[in-house]
């Protein structure tokens, strides 16, 4: 076991900030490559015309998931040392819904709005200001919602604990689900594209 490097004291906290910046560059680069600097491209997901959000997200999840799994198996990476969020089921579901509303209204999520802002989208800058304003608004009433915020605490829990299925089998199912999703996404895109062509033809 030698990874995660940071938790084995291979470098200092200060150096980790340099790493943060470099990793951030990679993150931002691929987000932009995927077209996530465009609100139109992002929101097309929700009109079934361009399923790139789903495709990119699930490819990334599957890639990292398989990587973490096999690196843990060969004893290189200690899975237990990777930080995992505790589960607070109900606040996370409610938060997810609100975030979904914000996504379709605002057109971005926090990470993608950064990429959009750096490529010159004025609406993304307004979105960023909105995120800070919303967080500030929440902080004012935070003491009132604190009981809800900490409700349904379930600790660190993964899908294999919940479903009582071995971790490896969950991985297989996630891969199958993602591949099935990709096939469906390609099919939907193709169908809508041919429909659009027909509409255009009629106009002409």
């Amino acid at each position: 076991m030698m990874a995660p490097f940071y938790k084995f004291d291979l470098f200092s906290e200060e150096f980790s900030f340099i790493i943060a910046f470099i990793i951030g560059i990679g993150f931002g680069f691929f987000l932009e490559r995927a077209g996530f600097g465009s609100a139109k491209k992002l929101t097309s997901q929700f009109y079934f015309t361009d399923m790139a959000v789903f495709k990119v997200m699930f490819t990334a999840i599957v890639t990292a998931m398989i990587g973490v799994y096999y690196l843990s198996l060969i004893g290189f990476l200690d899975y237990n040392l990777i930080y995992r969020n505790d589960t607070f089921l109900v606040p996370q579901i409610v938060g997810g819904l609100i975030l979904g509303f914000g996504f379709i209204i605002g057109g971005y999520c926090p990470g993608t709005s950064l990429v959009a802002a750096s490529t010159g989208k004025l609406d993304a800058i307004f979105f960023l200001l909105g995120v800070i304003a919303g967080t500030f608004g929440l902080s004012l009433i935070f003491s009132a919602i604190e009981p809800f915020y900490y409700s349904t605490a379930m600790g660190k829990l993964n899908l294999s604990d919940v479903l009582h299925i071995p971790y490896g089998i969950v991985i297989f199912f996630v891969v199958l689900m993602a591949l099935g999703g990709f096939i469906a996404a390609e099919w939907v895109e193709k169908r809508l594209a041919s429909k659009n062509v027909e509409v255009k033809d009629e106009k002409n």
Binding site: M57, N85, G96, L99, C109, P110, L129, T135, L138
Partner: peptide, 26 residues
């Protein structure tokens, strides 16, 4: 205006959910 509103909702939702699409979902 909508971008700002959506951002505000995002700020609230991300705090409740302890993360956004990058931290939680990804």
């Amino acid at each position: 205006l909508f971008a700002f509103l959506g951002g505000s909702l995002m700020g609230i939702g991300a705090k409740l959910a302890r993360g956004c699409t990058s931290g939680q979902a990804l």
